[in-house]
Amino acid sequence: MQYQTVLKKMKTELKDVVQYYLDVENDILNVNQLLNRKIEISFEGYQCLGCEKEKKIFRQGLCYDCFYKSAAVGDWVMKPELSTAHLGIEDRDLEYEKEVQLKPHIVYLALSSNVKVGVTRKTQVPTRWIDQGATKAIEIVEVPNRYLAGITEVALKEFVADKTNWQKMLKNDVLDADLIEEREKLKKYIPEEAQSYFLANNGKITEIEYPVLQYPAKVKSLNLEKTPVYSGTLIGVKGQYLLFEDGTVFNVRNSEGYKVLLNVN
């Protein structure tokens, strides 16, 4: 089977085992069904997800011009504490920023390689956790805007990591930890403005299983610009990565906007 597509991050569905879906030309591909099959990925060029022109991708699936114009990739996206829509202050497009920033946000703990703190819109639970390759996650606070979530994350990351070690995550080299206990330890460090939003009665841990037949002992990342044609047997999917039998891993999300041809045998 042959599929042509401009890569976008895989859609996910939380079931007993996470289901992964990839948009391909005129179709949706269930990636779980490709396990144990040989896949050839051929790089054919770029197509910006913003202007749709065949321009080199700069970041996040966008060409240079779109990246610096798009309201969806302002600094407040990576650094929620920089959000200003709650003050009526525009970064790039106040209406868009209000639409995103002035919605309920969750600050959470997730176990991916180690315990990490993170922020996501409430509507992105559990998608955000799956995209990070977390095996467990628990909510800490639910706040009414992105700014409050951001200052809470900044305060808590003094005491817990805010990054995932992607190699350990893909090798399933995951530190075990009691997330309920970790959450209780951090409670006193929540900023005063967000203390009342602590989810006192929430002891629910979400556990996530990934479609992986075998975890690699070592991983090497596939860069399509350096290796424009790659072929390997798919043995798993975790986070936004495809895992191959030879230890090669391919980050689909980091390759958004790349035009590829997929051959599945």
Rank of each mutant, 00 (worst) to 15 (best):
M1T: 09
M1G: 06
M1C: 01
Q2E: 14
Q2L: 06
Q4I: 08
K8N: 10
K11T: 07
T12V: 15
T12I: 15
L14V: 03
K15T: 09
K15E: 10
D16N: 13
V18W: 07
V18N: 05
Q19V: 14
L29A: 01
N30H: 03
N30G: 00
N30I: 12
N36Y: 07
I41K: 04
F43M: 07
L49H: 06
G50Q: 09
G50Y: 08
K53V: 02
K55M: 08
I57L: 10
I57K: 01
Q60N: 13
Y68N: 14
D75Q: 15
D75K: 15
D75G: 04
D75V: 15
W76M: 02
M78Q: 08
K79D: 03
P80G: 04
E81R: 15
S83H: 10
A85C: 13
H86G: 01
L87R: 14
L87C: 06
G88Y: 13
D93F: 04
D93M: 07
D93W: 04
L94H: 11
Y96L: 13
E99H: 14
L102Q: 05
P104V: 01
H105Y: 12
Y108N: 01
S112Q: 05
S112C: 08
S112H: 03
V117E: 00
R121S: 13
T123H: 14
V125L: 09
T127N: 11
R128Q: 04
I130V: 14
K136P: 03
A137M: 10
A137N: 00
A149C: 11
T152G: 01
E153Y: 09
E153R: 15
V154N: 06
V154Y: 04
L156S: 00
K157C: 01
F159K: 13
V160K: 09
D162K: 12
K163R: 15
T164Y: 06
N165E: 09
W166E: 02
M169V: 07
L170C: 01
L175D: 09
D176S: 15
D178S: 09
I180S: 00
E182A: 06
K187I: 10
K187G: 06
K187T: 05
E193M: 13
F198N: 01
A200Y: 13
N202F: 08
T206D: 03
E207Q: 14
Y210K: 00
Y210L: 04
V212F: 07
V212P: 02
L213E: 08
Y215E: 11
Y215K: 07
A217G: 05
S221P: 00
L222H: 04
L222C: 03
N223W: 05
N223L: 10
L224D: 04
P228N: 02
V229G: 01
S231G: 08
T233Y: 02
L234N: 03
I235Q: 12
V237E: 02
V237Y: 04
G239L: 10
L243E: 06
F244K: 11
V249I: 15
V249K: 13
N251E: 03
R253C: 03
N254V: 00
S255R: 08
S255Q: 11
E256Q: 15
Y258P: 03
Y258S: 02
Y258Q: 05
V260K: 04
L261T: 14
L261S: 14
L261Q: 14
L261Y: 07
L262H: 12
N263P: 00
V264M: 07
